[in-house]
Each structure stands twice: as structure tokens, then as C-alpha cells.
Design a protein around this nucleic acid. Structure first.
Lengths: 116, 116
DNA sequence: TACAATATGTCTCTTTTCGGACATATCAAG
DNA sequence: CTTGATATGTCCGAAAAGAGACATATTGTA
């Protein structure tokens, strides 16, 4: 059951924080869309649709979180992306929220008491 | 800018993992729907719609992640929830995924090499 | 006694997201 | 010379999620 739980949660992350996943992958290594799709399947067993990835990459670049350069191999073109400083800040902010959530005791009503 | 980022990410978590947020709150302290709404606003500044919370609580109970008992204060009724063992497993699995993600180096292509 | 707060529930309309098709081009292998 | 892989892009119909109203009842306060 726990394994099914895990798969479900990983899937939810990849759906709802796909931008973060993409930024993290590119942060680890400069990449282009097609490779991100292959890598995500290899690492997480999740098949991303290219119809989702390419518009996302373009919007992340428009938002200033990614920067691309064109690479040509023969006549074949790739758009290789790297994460900008702004993009790194976004990922770091994400990590910060993760860390806060791992301190579960924060949720216990220690701050301001509310009477029922 | 980082503060805006943080607010944005917290908001995304509360939207996409509202069930987890609710389970975590109830895990810290048994609660009913109305109090969850107030507590979430007090702790995170996020206003949850009761039209979203009550169906969610019912579905979490139907899924066996929550269990409720009725409490009467005068003629007023509350459905007080507590997290089941299954619900705790779900939250712990979530925490596990968070921890994995905080080890960002996992993403670097050390496992199986893919040639470009 | 009227209004705000407590308490839980449903329903509908709108907006967003998602899966999958359509589209095009290069290149390697069989 | 055709098929599969590489590579990037758009578009549309369906499905899911969202905001907000409708509904009802009790209790405390002004």
C-alpha cells in the first residue's frame, strides 16, 4: 500500500510542480525538452507529454526562470536551457517551503491559541 | 521577490495538497471543518472555502484516511475528525517524498548514463 | 430582533488543466 | 525507402477543479 501511496504522491508532485521538476533537472545539467522527457521517465518512471513540456519551457523562459541557446547538430536543432539566477531563487524558495513542512510540530497550536 | 515566490509556492501547496494539509492539521490536533478553515487562515493566511473543505473531509473519511465522531455542544453539532493509521501512512509517505526532493543531487545523472 | 459567528452540507457555472491529435523536419538503421 | 528515434511546436475537445451561491440551524451580541 505504501508503494502505491508513494507512486501516487510522486505523480501528484510531477503534475502540480512540473515547473519545479524541470528547473531542478536543468539545474543539475543543462538540457533540452526531449531529454527532459527521457530523463524523467528514466528517473521517476513518469512519461511527460511533449505537448506539455514545450509550452512550459517557453513560458518559463518568458518568465525569466530559464534561458535558452540554440545548438545545432548537423541540421538538427536543440534549444538547450539553463536556469537563471531568478530560477534558482524560485527553486530555493521551494526547498525552503519543503523544509518548513518537514517540521510538522509547527502545526501544533503553539503560536496563538484559539478557543473552540 | 522571494517573499512573493514564497507566497505563491505556499498557495500552490495548499491548492494541490489540500488533503495533506488537512491531515497534518488534524494529526496535530483533532479538529472539525470550521476550525480547520480558521486555523489555516491564522497559520498561513489562506482562506479555504467551506464548499471545498466539507466534501474533502467526507471523501477522506470514505477513503479511510480520517475517522469522525459527532460532538454536541448544546444543540450544535460538530464532526470531529482524527487521522487513521492509514492516513498517517499517507502523510508519512508524503514526508518521505519531501525528504528525497531535498537531496537535490539525486537528479544529477549518476545512475544510468544517457548519451545525447 | 437583527446581525455576525458557528457549523455542515449541496449545486451550478466558469475556468483551468489534460490527454491526445495534428504538424513538420532531420537522421539512423534495417 | 520505410520505420523509429530525435526534436519542437500548436490546437481542441473532454475532464477536472474552481469560485460562489443556495440551504439550514444554533448561538452570541449589539
Amino acid at each position: 500500500m505504501i508503494k502505491r501511496f508513494r507512486e501516487e504522491i510522486v505523480l501528484r508532485f510531477s503534475r502540480n510542480f512540473l515547473d519545479i521538476l524541470v528547473l531542478r533537472l536543468i539545474q543539475a545539467e543543462s538540457m533540452w525538452g526531449y531529454k527532459i522527457i527521457r530523463k524523467t521517465e528514466a528517473l521517476f518512471g513518469i512519461k511527460l507529454r511533449h505537448g506539455a513540456i514545450y509550452p512550459l519551457l517557453n513560458s518559463l523562459e518568458a518568465a525569466g526562470l530559464l534561458q535558452s541557446r540554440r545548438e545545432t547538430h548537423g541540421k538538427r536543432e536543440r534549444k538547450v536551457y539553463q536556469v537563471t539566477a531568478k530560477g534558482m531563487q524560485y527553486v530555493n524558495t521551494y526547498y525552503g517551503v519543503l523544509k518548513e513542512q518537514l517540521q510538522a510540530e509547527d502545526l501544533k497550536g503553539t503560536k496563538q491559541e484559539m478557543q473552540d
